[in-house]
């Protein structure tokens, strides 16, 4: 579904390449873990996969076609969660935040409201959170709201940058549940983390280690029907 082929990338003004001849594929129903030390390029891979950065060499394809030719509409199908939720959250209330993309897709208020309620419950937060002002939330709450805002429009590809960082054990379990359910429903998930999160042990199809530049094959094992996604209406 999403393919990076032979990607070379360096930031403007930099002499060294962050990524050299990097290739990666994420298919539907797959969880690919991207690991590596700080500065190894995990976030850069996610930004390239989301079409926000363009590699100097190589190609990025979504569903068999060049991604850049499909932007910005292709972002409807690609959800990117940033490591720092402060960066992501810019709307006044949680409701505005969670429905930012759905409101671009439809004017049906009842559908948008339902999406908001379902998404916030899916990440384990109560519905009353929708009325809260984003800036009043704790770091962990912001992280969950950011995740809710990304899953609200059910993207086919989820790009998650350190989704477990800074969360309590309970919240981490919730996030793991969301990831597993997304995979079970056919989304492809590319998850960047310093090291494989224990909550997803045995779930990943592959682990790509940017530190050693090798891909480790792990068989998919027992994706449980966690049932943590609240029911939602069809996509607009």
């Amino acid at each position: 579904m999403l393919r990076l082929s032979g990607v070379w990338f360096k930031y403007p003004g930099s002499k060294t390449y962050v990524l050299e001849d990097f290739s990666l594929e994420v298919g539907g129903g797959e969880l690919v873990l991207l690991t590596g030390p700080n500065g190894s390029g995990k976030t850069t891979v996610l930004l390239i996969a989301a079409g926000l950065l363009e590699p100097q060499k190589g190609s990025v394809e979504f569903e068999g076609r060049p991604l850049k030719k499909q932007l910005p509409e292709a972002r409807r199908h690609i959800g990117l969660l940033f490591q720092n939720p402060e960066v992501m959250l810019f709307n006044p209330t949680v409701y505005d935040e969670v429905t930012f993309v759905p409101r671009q897709l439809s004017r049906d208020k009842s559908w948008i409201d339902k999406v908001a309620r379902d998404s916030i419950r899916t990440v384990g937060l109560p519905e009353r959170f929708l009325n809260r002002r984003v800036q009043e939330l704790s770091y962990g709450e912001k992280k969950l709201v950011a995740l809710a805002s990304v899953i609200s429009y059910r993207p086919k590809i989820l790009l998650l940058d350190e989704p477990f960082e800074g969360l309590s054990r309970r919240a981490r379990e919730r996030v793991a549940c969301v990831v597993k359910e997304a995979v079970r429903r056919g989304s492809g998930v590319l998850l960047a983390s310093h090291e494989p999160p224990p909550e997803l042990a045995g779930v990943a199809s592959r682990v790509v280690d940017l530190g050693s530049k090798k891909s480790l094959e792990d068989p998919v094992q027992g994706l449980n029907d966690s049932g943590c996604y609240a029911d939602s209406a069809d996509r607009a």
Binding site: E73, R75, R76, F82, V101, Q104, S149
Partner: peptide
């Protein structure tokens, strides 16, 4: 970082959406 986070959630081709995101940033 802020710009990337906003641009990643602009899915419609309407220029006004993109420029509003930039202004918000």
């Amino acid at each position: 970082d802020y710009l990337a986070a906003r641009e990643s959630r602009v899915v419609s081709r309407a220029r006004s959406t993109l420029w509003r995101a930039l202004a918000l940033t």
